[in-house]
Design a protein around this nucleic acid. Sequence first.
DNA 1: CGCACTTTGTTCGGCAACCGAACAAAGTAG
DNA 2: CTACTTTGTTCGGTTGCCGAACAAAGTGCG
Lengths: 404, 404
Amino acid sequence: MIRGGAVVPDDELTRTVLDLVWRRREVSRAEMARDTGRSRSTISDVVGRLLDTGLVAEMGAGRSRGGRRPILVGFRDQAAVILGIDLGATHVSVILTNLRGRTLAWRECSHPVQTDPEGAEALIKALGDACLCEWGGDRSRLMGIGVAVPSPVDPDSPDRVLERVLPAWRGHSVIERLNAAFGVPVFVDNDANLGAVAERWWGEAVGIDDFVYLKVATGVGAGIMIGGRIHRGATGVAGEIGHVAIDPGGPQCVCGNRGCLATFVGTRQLVDRAGDLLACFPDSVLAGSEPDIRAIEDAALCDDPLALQVVREAAMRLGIVVAGVLNLLNPGSVILGGGLARAGERLIGPLREAVATRTLVASAAASDIRASELGDRAVALGAATHVLVAGLANPRLFPGVAPA
Amino acid sequence: MIRGGAVVPDDELTRTVLDLVWRRREVSRAEMARDTGRSRSTISDVVGRLLDTGLVAEMGAGRSRGGRRPILVGFRDQAAVILGIDLGATHVSVILTNLRGRTLAWRECSHPVQTDPEGAEALIKALGDACLCEWGGDRSRLMGIGVAVPSPVDPDSPDRVLERVLPAWRGHSVIERLNAAFGVPVFVDNDANLGAVAERWWGEAVGIDDFVYLKVATGVGAGIMIGGRIHRGATGVAGEIGHVAIDPGGPQCVCGNRGCLATFVGTRQLVDRAGDLLACFPDSVLAGSEPDIRAIEDAALCDDPLALQVVREAAMRLGIVVAGVLNLLNPGSVILGGGLARAGERLIGPLREAVATRTLVASAAASDIRASELGDRAVALGAATHVLVAGLANPRLFPGVAPA
DNA sequence: CGCACTTTGTTCGGCAACCGAACAAAGTAG
DNA sequence: CTACTTTGTTCGGTTGCCGAACAAAGTGCG
């Protein structure tokens, strides 16, 4: 039995062909030649070498276009697996996917990540191991690990993160330790950025190159996709919109200003607001018990008036920011993610209204605003997908695979 | 006498080398080989073909690095010329530059562009001819024309512009007509975008790939540079920030909302505001005559209290928007252009203050904010530069030149 | 000064990528 | 059954790029 196929070449044309095979799922050599402008002989040559790596395989014959039937070449989605880790403020979740973003295993656990870095790190390893065990495949087929952190990530030193948001993690090299534990490359990025990646590959933004992903959870953050790539800004803090001022007369924020978006929208704020509103909505299903964010979301889905009011108010505040984003960036789409997105149309409806009254340019206003449908796993999925993206851009990252 | 050199090749390496020669001004073949990672023989070959085109030339010997002295190769800045046209709301200005952005001629003229498209078009041709005459060179060396319009430009159909802002121009194909008149390629883009291009090549943003240019003139617009390229958005209206809402209780705007940036900042608004303030500042140098925007700017430069007040108020309003931009995009720099930028530090000082109170993230706040120093000609210069950029990306655009 | 060593730019033979032409295999249309 | 397409491969040729070798023109040290 052969263990490990030929090493994957990574010249320009190989990348192009590999990407094409991945996107098209089943495609003939002749079609790729037409698509890339190369000759059939050249494509045939490249495909031959890719077949040796085990990363692609012939999948049978396609429909004739008036002549000999083409041999369809496809991507072997199961050739490798990827771990995606969502390191939240208060939880850790881990996903194991194949190369088509399919979930092979999933583990989640509450944990005080902010204050207990050692425990969180052990938890990551345990959950990662559990996922790999559940999957049951050969661990040498693990391609890499993607990690999402709730903090800006400096593109120049991705390892020196978490300074302000997770102070206890200072000096903690997540990359080195995970690399030592699993023996594969580790990639780290901001959670909102990776949520955007998930939407672009598997969610509402498939095929859209310019869009903005808004994650509303413990805090508020944005992932900005421009030209199909995440925009990080000069120092990696692009998208940190929690402290955009939306109301000069609003409440005091921890940052020293008044009326930041973060003083209105975010888990803590929504829960508090629901508590305040209990007096006005004594019949709410939320009355009686200490409300948490999950309960509020559930209540909104049952059209509970109090919960709907909380969601509407949040939508109004988000609308101010979204309108600003539309005017400034003119994205093709705006996707809302995070827990609040569960509310779906109950959130998006009022949000669209708030935006419509604040944008002039017709085409900006026409930009469609949607709720994510990827659920809890969006960010972890995005973290895994980030590794896949890195692989398609640099095929050397794919492990050697036994040819089919 | 030879007329027209060899046609310029446009393979990948030729583009790289041409760009390198342009940027370095004087560079040896060996140095280019080190820089590009190619071998000296390959570079020598490419340079040889470029010498035949007349676009580059040997400029003498450089300093020895311990061996034979290198032959320095340089870009022939005077090999071609470019026309840049700034089509403002109420004026037309035209610049003629060489390939290093040096002004060879300059003409400007007030004109009701919005209501008289035929007249404006004739004016463009007349001013363009005047510039070419003043220069006195061979018109076959005109490489192209760049046009800046005060309106969003759809990247997919750059010719179908000006719908809302310049309604009288509906169906007017500027591109076709100028192409017919001058016989060279014509490029059209938005004025703020082209202002940003000028700053990136000749102004405050030289060497910066991510920055935002704010143009404050008749209206307010932004040019957003990301990764060294203009960000246009899904439908080409990115940067149209005049109708970002900054004060829910502000005055009514033509767009139907309240408190748009455009209700506070812009030629008309500043002049009106100065008029209102005359009562409070009877000693102002602006008292007595009908103030215009130019007079206000001049007065501010002389530290006239009224004018300074107008500028400060504008800075405060702009600060709200700039803070939002910093939080969202984290640009390396923000450049202010347009007439108001003449006020220099008198505008930027209060603007920095306003921004500082509204941004949390230290690195975002650290982004430096500057006033343009390119003056009136910035936009026309940017229009010309756009053609140069197109040429460096696609050398075929350079006209055949007689070798030196 | 003389000599060893560098650096530059060119020449030239060779490798690898890519192409086009030709061809066999396998289909469709009439 | 025949004429025509389409696919995928083979094969010889062109082209871009490289490395080695070399002459020219420097530097630095004894």
